[in-house]
Deep mutational scan, measured.
Amino acid sequence: MKATFQVPSITCNHCVDKIEKFVGEIEGVSFIDVSVEKKSVVVEFDAPATQDLIKEALLDAGQEVV
């Protein structure tokens, strides 16, 4: 499964690193693409990962998800 999250609070590479760390810890996540320019995060994943778990990880990383 693939999901795109709009994350307007992404401003720098530190944000990218933190997002990759938090989302990458979720079992089932196979790909993460964070774009500072587009302020988006694209995640490819399989169970047990879910969109809700990914959104929670983004929030835990200090990001706003819309």
Rank of each mutant, 00 (worst) to 15 (best):
P48I: 02
E25C: 07
S30Y: 11
D52A: 13
P48F: 02
E27H: 09
V29T: 03
V36M: 08
K55D: 02
V65T: 05
Q51I: 15
K2D: 04
P48A: 03
I19M: 03
T4F: 15
A57V: 06
V23Q: 02
V66E: 08
I32M: 05
T11L: 08
S9I: 05
L53W: 05
E20D: 05
I54A: 00
K38W: 12
S40L: 14
Q6A: 10
D60M: 14
E20G: 07
E56H: 13
V66C: 14
K55L: 14
E44S: 09
E27W: 07
P8A: 10
F31S: 10
N13W: 13
A49I: 00
S40F: 12
T4Q: 10
P8F: 08
D60S: 14
G28E: 02
F45V: 02
T11A: 08
S40Q: 14
G62A: 06
A49D: 02
G24L: 09
M1N: 13
S30E: 07
K21E: 06
I32P: 00
E20H: 15
G28V: 03
E25K: 14
I19D: 02
V66M: 09
D17W: 13
H14D: 15
E25L: 13
G62V: 10
A49M: 01
T50S: 08
L58I: 13
V23S: 01
D46Y: 14
L53D: 06
D17H: 11
K55G: 04
I26E: 00
K38L: 12
E27K: 09
I10L: 09
A57M: 04
T50H: 05
S30V: 13
V34R: 00
G62C: 15
I54N: 02
V42F: 12
K2L: 10
I54D: 01
D17A: 14
T11D: 07
E37R: 09
D60R: 15
G28A: 01
F5S: 02
V7R: 00
E25N: 13
V29L: 03
V65E: 05
K55S: 05
D52G: 08
E25Q: 14
D46W: 12
N13T: 12
F5C: 04
E64I: 15
T11F: 15
L58M: 06
L59E: 11
P8C: 07
S35T: 04
K2H: 10
V43F: 01
F45T: 02
E27N: 07
K18G: 02
I54M: 01
I26P: 01
V29A: 03
V65S: 06
I10P: 00
A49T: 03
A49H: 02
S35P: 00
D46Q: 13
D33T: 12
A3L: 12
S35A: 04
V36Y: 06
F22R: 07
V29Y: 03
V34Q: 01
K55F: 13
L53E: 08
E37M: 07
L53R: 13
V29H: 03
V65W: 08
I26K: 01
N13V: 15
G24H: 06
V16T: 06
I32K: 01
Q6P: 04
E25G: 11
F31C: 10
